[in-house]
Amino acid sequence: MMVVIILAAMAFAIFEPIQVLPRMRLAPGFALTDQSGEPFSSEVARGTVTLYTFATTGCDEQCETVSDTMRDVQRRVEAEVDMGSSEFALVTVALDPTDSEALAVAAAEAGADGQTWRWVGSDDEAAIRRTVGTGFQRFFETADDGSIRYDPSFVLVDGNGVVRGDYRYSTLANDGEKLSRHVAILAEEIRNATGATAVAYEAAHLFLCYP
């Protein structure tokens, strides 16, 4: 019997019949405000698969690139991914201290509808640094001319507040096809990992069956 189990485990590891995204670390707890002036916190996002990105409200070239990718992911997920009973949201976190009016302008320019895709931020620079820098582990800096330098990046967080995807280099980050495919893998796990099937999904995590 032990031989059968070991062979089954090896077959599972080799053929990877189920793919999962790793449970990397906890996403930060935060309390920000969205483009409508409503509070947006990590608790509001709980229960929803959320793709985060980071940009400035005075949208620069980097910002346009990440917004293009956000629109691409939104379109692909709506068209191609079965989210089951869970929901999917996109969130752009403003890196510059700002208010809801500036967030609303930036959101409108990017095409964020305020429902599926929100822009969120704070006028408290310490809160932004705590959330984006320490929490999401993203580096950004303010240049002498006041502009903010950052690299395009994305973080995929599941409904339990766990980071499941971290995309931080420009060659990897702006890939809407890959991001939506990862959302689909996560959605499939959420839909199927219940009851006895949960064992198979835990085995997939155990054997690092990652895409």
């Binding site: 906890l26 996403a27 930060p28 707890g29 935060f30 309390a31 916190s41 959330t131 320490t134 507040g161």
Partner: peptide, 13 residues
């Protein structure tokens, strides 16, 4: 407390 809470994924208000 803010720093610790944020890093442990905790929101409080």
């Amino acid at each position: 407390i803010d720093s610790a809470a944020s890093q442990y994924g905790i929101f409080y208000q």
